[in-house]
């Protein structure tokens, strides 16, 4: 459904952030994108959704195709209307609007008649949002804001949802709740999701396929179940040694070296 081939991204014409990223998101699957801070995960999502260009970023090489059409030169509004909705990291809710207004704006590009029923669907997934629907979003808790954000994206009935770190800064229980809902979304609505996460364990559990990024490159990919068993992943991202024991510094160094060659 979505294919990135050799995508290179520069900010302000000089800062090379992505150095040839290729990945695929098949229809109806959850694909995870893992990597440490600054690896370029968010940049990849912004390249897909077109939001890059609002920050002086630009796809300078390679191509991004969505359902057979190239989208790497299209305006972000147009891309969203084609059905790619990005849930940005850092809880970018519209703070001064109520939850319901946030949701209504999420459905802005949909026929007005369907907005009501879509909102009911969102409330069915997130009962908490129904309780808070007249509350000003800025005063919700972090978890509720994250739910409002995902709900807002659902209102657009996206064909592909780009989820950027939905678990950031949330308590484990809330994270579990949100992940359960994402999984249900995929199972019940057949949603296609590209999920960016720091929390590799959770992401690998719910996704079908995963890519690992380092320094603007994809360094590893495979079915999530296989990656979860992969030695390097286990050691580096899941913090487990071969036998589940902790590593000493010397060994960590060798991983670093190894990682570079991945």
């Amino acid at each position: 459904m979505l294919t990135l081939s050799n995508v290179e991204v520069k900010y302000a014409g000089v800062i090379l952030v992505l150095r040839g990223v290729s990945l695929q998101v098949p229809e109806g699957k959850i694909v995870a994108l893992l990597g440490s801070n600054g690896a370029g995960k968010t940049t990849t999502l912004k390249a897909i959704s077109g939001l890059l260009r609002t920050e002086l970023g630009e796809v300078t090489a390679g191509s991004i195709e969505f359902c057979g059409g190239r989208i790497d030169r299209v305006d972000p509004e147009q891309i969203a209307r084609q059905g790619i909705i990005q849930v940005m990291e850092g809880r970018k809710v519209l703070k001064h609007l109520t939850v319901e207004e946030n949701l209504r704006l999420g459905g802005y590009i949909r026929p007005a008649a369907e907005v009501r029923s879509d909102m009911e669907m969102v409330y069915a997934y997130f009962p908490r949002l129904r309780e808070k629907r007249t509350a000003v979003t800025g005063y919700l808790s972090g978890g509720e804001q994250q739910m409002a954000l995902i709900g807002r994206a659902m209102m657009a009935r996206p064909r592909l949802m780009l989820l950027d770190e939905p678990s950031m800064g949330l308590a484990p229980l809330i994270v579990a709740e949100i992940y359960a809902i994402i999984q249900r979304l995929a199972a019940e609505e057949g949603a296609t999701i590209l999920l960016v996460e720091q929390n590799a364990r959770a992401a690998l559990r719910i996704s079908d396929y995963a890519y690992v990024m380092e320094n603007g490159r994809v360094v590893l990919d495979g079915p999530s179940a296989a990656l979860a068993e992969n030695e390097d992943i286990r050691e580096f991202y899941l913090g487990m040694g071969k036998l589940g024991e902790r590593k000493n510094f010397r060994e960590v160094k060798t991983y670093k070296r190894r990682k570079r060659w991945l």
């Binding site: 939001l51 891309i79 969203a80 970018k92 703070k95 609007l97 704006l105 590009i109």
Partner: peptide, 24 residues
């Protein structure tokens, strides 16, 4: 109204609105 609501949204951030397919 839809567009009135969108205006209030635009006041909060252009990028957010664009990510929802709304032409700022």
């Amino acid at each position: 109204t839809r567009i009135g609501l969108a205006m209030r949204g635009v006041a909060e951030g252009h990028q957010i609105m664009q990510s929802m397919g709304i032409s700022v």
